[in-house]
Amino acid sequence: MRGRDDEWTELMLSANAGDSIAYRRLLESVTPVLRAGARRGLARAGQPVDQAEDIVQEILLAVHLKRHTWDGTAPFAPWLLAIARNKLIDTLRRRGRRVFVDIDDFAETLPSEPPRETLPASEVTKHLEALPARQREVLQSIAVDSASIKDTAAKLSMSEGAVRVALHRGLSALAAKLRTV
């Protein structure tokens, strides 16, 4: 797994230098690993594995909002897997499960099963609807309609700066809402 870790570390370094394509590739590359770990953790706790996608999305949001805590001189994978474990434990605790930390759920192995069809997660969608209108419109435009910041600004008659602020606030608010359910 050495090669993959190095690749992640390089992508994250590029991302921190402002390369959003590298950042997107990184998030896409870590997602199957997170999904496999979330499924393993849920299965072991006797929970339905179809909730894995909610956990994956919560991990991705935390990775995004806490990426400044990654030390660029250290490898990326241990940092990522620590966040993933915390989020899995939090989720299971919120459901009243006794949690025994098993560091193997997010062991650094690729999923052996072929990527199967994933269900759209419901938690983010639910909380998206409760966001202030501006944040929701911006998030929907960029995430669901795949519009750029520029197009979103034009469509909603906002400045690009205001779109960026609304996007960031919306993502932070989503993470906060996921944390408290």
Binding site: N16, G18, S20, I21, Y23, R24, L27, E28, T31, E53, V56, Q57, L60, L61, H64, R67, H68, T69, T118, P120, A121, V124, T125, L128, L139, I142, A143, V144, S146, S148, I149, R164, V165, L167, H168, L171
Partner: peptide, 22 residues
């Protein structure tokens, strides 16, 4: 929301990256 949609939104959000905890 599908996860690749969320990733799209995360990648578009470049703000607030550099202020370290210290």
């Amino acid at each position: 929301m599908e996860t690749d949609r969320l990733i799209q939104a995360l990648a578009a959000d470049g703000a607030d990256r550099y202020r370290p905890v210290g």
